[in-house]
Design a protein around this nucleic acid. Structure first.
Lengths: 171, 171
DNA sequence: TTCATTTTTTAACCTAGGTTAACGATTACT
DNA sequence: AGTAATCGTTAACCTAGGTTAAAAAATGAA
C-alpha cells in the first residue's frame, strides 16, 4: 500500500472552476489534495488586507494545511487560478494506513521529507536573498512561470508589491 | 521501537564547547542531532559574507540538514552558543528502523510533521510580517530569549541588522 | 582589578521597496 | 464589436531598514 495506492483507494476526484476556493483561511480541513489538472495559489490574507502567496501548485503537486491536519485551522487559502481537477484524500485514512501498514508509513515519510526540503529552500530564500535575487531564482527554476501566473501574483509570491517587481524587471 | 528507543539504541552522546561547530555549511552529514544540554544556532553564511540565522536550538530540540540527509550537502552551519551536549543519531539507522518497524516509522512521521508545522510558521512570518511584528512575535513566544541569545544574533534571526533591531527596541 | 573583546546604542546618510495615482495594454464578458 | 475589469508600467513621494563609524556598555580572560 504505497501513496499512489492510497490515493486510488481513498481519494475522490473533484473539479473546481477558475477563481473558486478549495478551502479558506480559518477553515477546518483534514484533507491532502493532489493536483491532477490546473493551477492554484496558496495564499495568506493578512490583517492589513494584503495578500501574500505561499506557493503555486501545478499538476503533480500536493498540498495540505499541516496546521489544519493536526487539529487546527487552515493558515492559508487555496484558490484556483485556472479550471482545476483535484484528488481529495482524507488525512484520517492516511493516518490509519500509516498506523497499520509499513509501506504506507514509509511513503508518507517520503512525501513529508520532500515537503521539508522545499520549505527549507523557501525559508533560505526569504531570509537570505534580496527580492531581485529571489526573482532571478524563480525565473531559473520556472522559466515559463509568467505564462501561467500574473505578474501581480508573482510579486506577492516574492514578498514585494507588483510595482516593485515591475521596477526590478525594468532594471 | 519508538523514537526515544531509537535514540537510546543508536545514538551516541557528544560534548561540544561553546563556539565550536557541529557541522559546517557544505559538509556531508547524515545525522540527526538531539540537544540534551546547551544552546545552538543554525545559520547560513551568505556569499556577501553576512550571517543569517535559521533557528536557535535548545534542550529538547532536534535538528538535521534535510538536504544533507538526502544525499546533498548541509545548507547551513550548526554552531554552539554555549557548552553543549548532543546525541548524534545516524540517519541510516533511522531509515532502516522505519523500513522494518511500524512504530518507528510512525514516530518519524510525527517528528517530520512537527518540523513541517514549524517551518510553515516561519515561512508565514518571513513572508507576511514586518521586522517589528516578527520581533514582537518572538518576544511573545520566547520571553526570556535575550537571556540566552545576544541581540546581534536575534537580529540576524529576524532577518535585519543589529542596528535596525536596536532602533525597533528604542521605539 | 585591568585590559581586551564583544555587544549595544546612537547618529548621519543612503537605498530598496512601499504608496498612491494616472495611463495604456490586456483580457473577459455580453 | 463594445464595455468593463484586470494587469502592467511609470512617476513622484515616503519609509523601513541598510551602511558606516564612533562611543558607551557589558563581558571575559589573565
Amino acid at each position: 500500500m504505497n501513496f499512489n495506492e492510497l490515493v486510488k483507494q481513498f481519494g475522490t476526484s473533484q473539479n473546481y472552476p477558475k477563481k473558486s476556493y478549495v478551502f479558506s483561511q480559518g477553515d477546518e480541513n483534514k484533507y491532502i489534495y493532489l493536483i491532477t489538472k490546473g493551477v492554484l495559489k496558496a495564499c495568506y490574507n493578512a490583517e492589513d488586507g494584503k495578500e501574500y502567496i505561499k506557493s503555486f501548485l501545478f499538476s503533480g503537486d500536493n498540498i495540505a494545511s499541516t496546521q489544519a491536519l493536526n487539529g487546527g485551522f487552515c493558515s492559508f487559502s487555496l484558490i484556483c487560478l485556472k479550471d482545476t481537477n483535484l484528488i481529495k484524500l482524507p488525512y484520517q485514512e492516511v493516518q490509519q494506513a500509516a498506523a497499520k501498514n509499513l509501506e504506507a508509513a514509509n511513503s508518507i515519510i517520503e512525501v513529508l521529507m520532500s515537503f521539508a526540503i522545499k520549505k527549507e529552500q523557501r525559508e533560505f530564500e526569504l531570509l537570505c536573498l534580496s527580492a531581485d535575487q529571489r526573482y532571478q531564482n524563480l525565473l531559473t527554476k520556472s522559466p515559463d512561470i509568467s505564462q501561467h501566473i500574473t505578474q501581480n501574483d508573482i510579486a506577492r509570491y516574492l514578498g514585494i508589491t507588483p510595482v516593485a517587481l515591475s521596477r526590478i524587471k525594468h532594471k
